[in-house]
Design a protein around this nucleic acid. Structure first.
Length: 711
DNA sequence: GACCTGCTGCGGCTTG
């Protein structure tokens, strides 16, 4: 394969002193040089996927004519900046120009590229959106002779609104292109590659190259029950002693918890004269501070450090030196667990290590289930929306803006040619266009559609280019220094203390007009409050949790008392006369109430809860242990289920009423609030609830009592 | 029990 590469590329490989090419690289070289197919390159992090795409593309593509030849699309600015250095180094061997194009990139460099379109461009989806909206002529000049689009971390787009937008943008770029460009997607190991293939728009002409080689890995599960709102001191001491000499990433599931751990470990360390390299890294920590932490961790080889982080360090840039990963309470998905495990032991010959802490028994069981499924090779599939009416609404405005107005038939033909909206019926598109006109987002003048009065506000706002929602934040500053940004909560008041960026601060001024909180260092404080919905948990995880309770195999990774906790749970649940793990569900009778454990995914649980409430049943739903508490005994449950099924039989009617009564139901989507009622309901049915799943569940559901409750 | 992601154009200022 090496011989097939062009001479400058081979020289680069020689200078790098790479003795062998990685399996994914060899496979990609053959496919890219030999064929005209779209590709998905899937392998674990740090396996050389970027080079797998660029070595052959640079050997194949002729860069001598004007025009950008390769477009690299990334979900993160930080990743673009990181990849720029690698790609540019390689491109120097071929005299190919590389340009960064994102919101924080140099305007001067962008202007130079516009004057002299050439080489490779590294860009974000939102920057493509902005260019198409504001300077479509630039997009034509730059991208009309493009031959390859490389999409990095393509798994992060699949199943999300941003992924639909990206598909639509690729279709819009194909529309500008004189030829046809090929797509190469770089993916982590995921659950199903069909959805990845769909990203390219041409499933039949997309091949998946999969390197299943996983790293060897060790795990240990520890248990420290949490009683109040703060983590047990014993857990923190144990965590400190287990990590104090290592380079470690700690993943709690929230920003507040990340701050709590960083501050408390740092205090413990200071008390015994340990290292001071304790950081917190999440979306509320100031961006420059986060970059400093990333650079420190990337370049430092000698000193131990601990970074407590959220999913900010799950994707993207590689901190090669991480020796140990700690997960505090269960991840929401197996995909996320896989990514986090992959953050350690990146060096050749190193073993990935995962240290797991649970603070309650359900979290312990959930993480054991995720880990078991990971070992069994299962990762939950990512489903992308077939009928993204909200993104369609957004893209209709984007098309009209890009074209500076167009006829209705042109707009319709653009949508029909756009594979992101392939499954949406023509009548629905017409319907939504009419709705845009009636509400002044579009305006019809003669045969032309132009942006309407209400639409102008939207398309000319900075917020137009993205399809995801963000919270309104207050800036936290210490004199001139920015610490970060947090959502305002009543807890933030004069003389109150809070934790941020791994330090304790006292609030000395709150400026609501400027949305600014002034702080000074302090000695003791509470973690700030954050709001937000967690990710949905896939039903397979809950099913596996139930299976786990009815298995007797000893789990060797459990450290005491975690083992005892699992034995207790098994003893408790084996008292229910479960015969079918798919249909039977434990029903715990109490004095005047009873608790049904559904062992179902979040969407089925949310749907069940909706049905119970709508049919007038008072029920207490807890997602954490997937349970519903009813007042009364088994008859009350049977009655509630019967009533729920009546609502289910007429779900469209009940859902419409609910959306009218509580418009906030649709808040998970940024643009859906502008849609006609009917489409709001369809979005809820497709993306938030799972009523067909509920129907299947209720059809076979058999609540089973504990043997101690019988007769 | 509660994640993450990105962002134009232009006027007006300072600085070399």
């Amino acid at each position: 394969m090496y011989e097939l590469l062009s001479e400058p590329v081979r020289r680069y490989i020689r200078d790098k002193r790479w003795e062998v090419l990685r399996p994914i690289q060899l496979a990609a070289i053959g496919k890219i040089l030999g064929g005209e197919e779209n590709l998905i390159l899937a392998s674990r992090t740090a396996s050389g996927k970027t080079e797998a795409a660029f070595l052959p593309i640079l050997s194949k593509v002729d860069f001598s004519a004007a025009g950008v030849k390769v477009l690299y699309i990334s979900p993160l600015i930080a990743l673009i900046n990181d990849q720029f250095n690698r790609v540019e180094e390689l491109c120097q061997y071929l005299d190919v120009k590389v340009t960064k194009w994102h919101g924080e990139a140099s305007k001067g460099e962008k202007n130079k590229l516009v004057k002299n379109p050439q080489g490779i461009v590294l860009i974000t989806p939102e920057s493509i959106e902005a260019m198409l909206a504001n300077a479509p002529h630039n997009a034509v000049n730059l991208f009309s002779t493009m031959q390859y689009v490389v999409i990095d971390e393509i798994h992060s787009f699949i199943g999300s609104d941003r992924g639909i937008q990206l598909k639509s943008l690729l279709a819009r770029l194909q529309g500008l292109n004189v030829g046809k460009f090929l797509v190469v997607g770089l993916s982590a190991t995921i659950g199903d590659y069909d959805s990845a293939k769909k990203m390219t728009g041409d499933v039949a002409n997309t091949k998946v190259l999969l390197d299943k080689n996983a790293k060897e890995m060790e795990a240990e599960f520890r248990f420290f029950e949490m009683e109040g709102v703060d983590l047990p001191i014993e857990l923190l001491k144990d965590l400190y002693l287990s990590t104090r000499n290592n380079k470690v990433l700690i993943f709690p599931n929230s920003r507040g918890r990340a701050e709590e751990i960083a501050v408390k470990l740092s205090k413990l360390s200071a008390r015994v004269g340990g290292h001071g390299n304790y950081f917190s890294h999440h979306s509320s920590v100031d961006k420059e501070l986060r970059e400093y932490i990333e650079t420190f961790a990337k370049t430092n080889v000698r000193y131990p450090f601990a970074i407590t982080c959220t999913s900010t360090l799950e994707l993207g840039i590689d901190i090669g030196s991480v020796e140990q990963v700690v997960q505090v309470d269960a991840t929401f998905s197996i995909a996320s667990l896989v990514q986090r495990i992959g953050r350690s032991g990146r060096r050749e010959g190193e073993i990935s290590k995962l240290l797991f802490y649970a603070t309650d028994k359900w979290s312990l069981l959930q993480s054991l289930a995720c880990f078991a499924l990971y070992r069994e090779g299962y990762i939950e599939p990512l489903v992308s929306s077939a009928k993204p009416y909200d993104i369609l609404w957004h893209q209709l405005l984007a098309y009209v803006k890009q074209l500076s107005g167009c006829s209705k038939s042109v707009l319709l033909s653009k949508i029909q040619a756009n594979y992101a909206f392939r499954d949406i019926k023509l009548e629905a598109v017409v319907d939504i266009i009419e709705h845009l006109i009636t509400h002044d987002f579009l305006e019809q003048i003669g045969g032309e559609l132009i942006i309407g009065v209400e639409g102008e506000w939207i398309v000319n706002s900075r917020d137009f280019y993205s399809v995801f929602k963000t919270e309104a934040n207050y800036k936290v500053v210490n004199y001139d220094r920015s610490i970060g940004e947090i959502p305002f909560s009543p807890q933030i008041d004069l003389d109150q203390n809070l934790l941020l960026a791994a330090k304790i601060w006292k609030v000395i001024e709150v400026d609501h007009k400027a949305k600014k909180i002034a702080v000074i260092p302090a000695n003791d404080g509470k973690k700030p409050l954050f709001f937000g919905a967690g990710a949905d948990i896939h039903p397979r995880i809950r099913e596996r949790m139930l299976e786990m309770l009815y298995e007797s195999a000893i789990i060797s990774e459990l450290a005491e008392p975690a083992g005892e906790v699992v034995r207790e749970m098994r003893k408790e649940f084996q008292g229910y006369r479960i015969e079918s793990l798919t249909d039977d569900r434990p029903l715990l009778l109490k004095d005047s109430s009873c608790q049904l454990f559904s062992f179902q995914g979040s969407r089925i649980n949310k749907s069940l809860s909706f049905l119970f409430k709508t049919s007038g049943t008072e029920v207490q739903y807890t997602e954490h242990n997937s349970s519903f508490v009813f007042s009364g005994g088994k008859q009350a449950v049977d009655l509630a289920i019967a009533k729920a099924r009546e609502v289910l039989a007429d779900i469209d009617f009940h859902l419409e009423n609910a959306v009218i009564a509580q418009p906030g139901l649709i808040d998970f989507s940024k643009w859906a609030l502008h849609l006609p009622l009917k489409y709001k309901c369809e979005i809820l049915l497709e993306r938030y609830f799972d009523f067909s799943g509920v129907a299947g569940f209720l059809d076979s559901l058999n609540p089973v009592l504990h043997s101690g409750n019988l007769e």
